[in-house]
Design a protein around this nucleic acid. Sequence first.
DNA 1: TAGATTGTTAATCGATTAACAATC
DNA 2: TAGATTGTTAATCGATTAACAATC
Lengths: 240, 240
Amino acid sequence: MTEGWQSYRTEKLPEATVLRLGLYQRVLAEFARARRTTISSDELGRHTGENPANVRKDLSRLGTLGTRGTGYDVGTIAARIDEVFATSTPRRVVVVGLGNLGRALVRSRSFFQQGFEVAALFDSSPAVVGTTVAGHVVQPMESVTPEVEALGARFGVLTVPPEAAQDAVERLVRGGVGYIVNFAPKLLQVETTVVVRYVDLSIELQMLGYVEAQGLRSTTSSSIGSSGRQLGSPSAEVLS
Amino acid sequence: MTEGWQSYRTEKLPEATVLRLGLYQRVLAEFARARRTTISSDELGRHTGENPANVRKDLSRLGTLGTRGTGYDVGTIAARIDEVFATSTPRRVVVVGLGNLGRALVRSRSFFQQGFEVAALFDSSPAVVGTTVAGHVVQPMESVTPEVEALGARFGVLTVPPEAAQDAVERLVRGGVGYIVNFAPKLLQVETTVVVRYVDLSIELQMLGYVEAQGLRSTTSSSIGSSGRQLGSPSAEVLS
DNA sequence: TAGATTGTTAATCGATTAACAATC
DNA sequence: TAGATTGTTAATCGATTAACAATC
């Protein structure tokens, strides 16, 4: 994609790797701010709670980027990860549902980053429609499909109550949205071309409740929860 | 635990199973509201996006609860899942950080459910301290440790900026908190007896960005993300 | 009985980790 | 050169899925 520079034909990365690349990115940004030019898999592992072997495996999937005996160049891998996420392509995201969570996400600095930008906001409540949230005037549900289409938005965030989720997603998809983060605890019926990530915040506390009830303890304090992979996700998640 | 009724000595369940039990619970509640008394692994699977074989496997770990040829009794498995999560034991949760996300969680009906209750709120900003959020007066950071101790709270939610996370977690742990959901994108240094779940909301959108960039499409629209879970995590997560 | 659906085994898949040769 | 650290292989672990006998 850039001349004089090999453009790796990155094959489909494992979901777990993609999830971790985001973590690495953050640590790399910290290192860059601290004017550190080099980082080892060991350091990256210590800052993310990941096994260094796993870090190397993840990074090696992006190409041969490290230098034996030295480590990785901070700028090089940061740029490579940005490339994988295509952060330079601006992506318009619409948000449906401006209750507490929707507002929090729209206002937060961290949710929309890396090339994502809020393009429009929608809500079903007449009390909310017409108000301004984070610089955007909230529009009614009837406007979802035409607006999404007009904006060419491909990404949607669903922060509506579960009963409203199916209707909302249909409006989004009709307008052309193909990638959705769904915070409503409800399985959505969508065409198989539409990619949905399900995020369920209440499950995290419940999981801790289980761990306490069992009197179990983690031995190492590691890693991340996609908030969802977590399991993933943790988490069984869409993709592949 | 209850007389005349076998108390299964549920062994440590796989993390992925625990995450799914929460999903099942929700579908069961829906069925109960609809006065349905029976549910099959197939129906439960259709409503959660899980494979029916996996549903049966999960449920069989809780004991022999189903009836061949018929399915599962809605009330029985709902009660059994509640038992696993020990939802009848009230659990006090304190929240540190009342920015957009902290407020959203405290006000939301769905985050604190099933035996969890907000016990106290804390923030470092003088402008926020003293204000009332969802019926609780926000207290300063200096009060975290003594208040947690006085309340006997064992659970904490961290919704502070990453720079403030380590200080906050130390105050929580000193007061006796042992189970933490951390929304700050920062790995916490804690004793190994403390269980931390990491939730990273921005990773979900990033993952979708990756999928779009690759031009990939999911074939089936399935399941959940612990919000991180998707692995849970999706998502490498703490526990075991 | 015939049909339905569980409980469980075996096969598969994907992800993590340890170990070490390659090499800076 | 000696020390450090990558890239990669092989071993392990955990989770999913298909298949089917057991049984209501």
